[in-house]
């Protein structure tokens, strides 16, 4: 069976990551499996982890009273779920639900935050990987709110 360090090393998120940093992250990581419909986390929960999707699909959702949850993005293989673990107060701002059977690596946020504080090189490498993802998602959100396909 493949070790978690190898799995992390092949995940696109960690491309070019130094081996020593990989070991540090692997120490906070564990394999997780979510059945279709199962929630990775819900809005308001403590953001005590983030997830690297290996297989499957995860929907990010917001809930409005009186309506079914609204999915505003789906994420799949090779993508990252969750950034709230980076910022106080470390609470999820949306829910994440497995749309289909999903395998992911969950990374313990408190563990990794501690290691990033202790080793700013590691922290910087993590930030360099998170920031482009956040910017991409911000861009996508801009396009999404323009609602370009509607009659305008």
């Amino acid at each position: 069976m493949e070790g978690i360090e190898e799995i992390l090393g092949r995940h696109p998120f960690f491309a070019g990551f130094a081996a020593e940093h990989g070991r540090l992250v692997a120490g906070c990581a564990r394999n997780q499996r979510f059945a279709a419909g199962e929630y990775l986390f819900r809005e308001g929960d403590p953001a005590d982890a983030f997830f690297l999707i290996r297989h499957g699909r995860v929907a990010l959702e917001l809930v409005e009273p009186g309506r079914p949850p609204v999915a505003f993005a789906t994420l799949g293989e090779g993508e990252i779920v969750g950034a709230s673990w980076l910022l106080p107060p470390y609470r999820w701002r949306f829910a994440a639900r497995a749309v289909e059977l999903t395998r992911a690596i969950g990374i313990d946020a408190a563990c990794l935050r501690g290691k990033c504080e202790a080793d700013h090189h590691l922290g910087y490498e993590m930030m360099k990987r998170f920031l482009p993802i956040l910017v991409e998602r911000l861009q996508a959100t801009r396009l999404q709110i323009l609602d370009v396909y509607g009659k305008r």
Partner: peptide, 23 residues
């Protein structure tokens, strides 16, 4: 196929189409 706004019955991608390009 991705949609900007999904309803409960949709099991496909949600999000804008450029986001599918890297995948």
């Amino acid at each position: 196929v991705t949609v900007d706004h999904a309803d409960a019955g949709w099991r496909g991608h949600v999000g804008v189409v450029p986001a599918l390009i890297p995948r």
